[in-house]
């Protein structure tokens, strides 16, 4: 089947029910998207599918055929994504960093849909887990990206 990954058509041969995460990581060799739980609990695997934040670890690859998929590797090609990354750097958000690809993707999705989010909007959208507890920095960086 054909996927559209970061604007580029990619032919993949994984079984149709393979989670999108593992097609991205293993078949396409892009490891920025992380495996944390495989059960849509943690959000480390978040990518954008047609602009929607999507937990790729439970998303069968066949369900996104033909839809635009954006991964962390293309974050710099999106003006909102660039603002989010710069805010993440300014706020020194990451600690171990393992969840941060997913956090950055979730924040980018939020700000593309809601450029001026309230604190409640941020709380509702930013639900990914971080075992290092960078939650306050994540919220601050998301607010900063919205202003910047």
């Amino acid at each position: 089947m054909e996927l559209i990954i970061n604007g580029t058509p990619r032919r993949v041969e994984s079984e149709a029910d393979t989670p999108l995460l593992w097609v991205i990581r293993d078949e396409l060799g892009m490891t920025g998207t992380k495996y944390g739980c495989g059960a849509a609990q943690c959000g480390a695997c978040t990518v954008l599918v047609d602009g929607q934040p999507t937990r790729s670890c439970v998303t069968p690859v066949e369900s996104v055929a033909g839809l635009p998929v954006t991964t962390i590797e293309a974050i710099g090609e999106d003006p909102v994504g660039r603002k989010v990354v710069e805010a993440w750097v300014a706020q020194q958000v990451p600690q171990c960093g393992y969840c941060q690809s997913g956090q950055v993707m979730a924040a980018t999705a939020l700000l593309k849909q809601t450029p001026q989010p309230s604190d409640e909007d941020i709380a509702a959208a930013m639900t990914n887990l971080c075992r290092c507890g960078t939650y306050n920095a994540i919220a601050a960086a998301t607010r900063q990206a919205a202003q910047g």
């Binding site: 974050i75 020194q92 990451p94």
Partner: peptide
């Protein structure tokens, strides 16, 4: 002082053991 690894961790470029790959590798 700013952390050295923040940008790579904010752009998916940081690599962990789980991301490693070598020629001819099976999983």
């Amino acid at each position: 002082v700013a952390r050295l690894d923040v940008r790579e961790k904010s752009t998916g470029k940081a690599t962990y053991a789980i991301d490693m790959a070598v020629e001819g590798m099976l999983q």
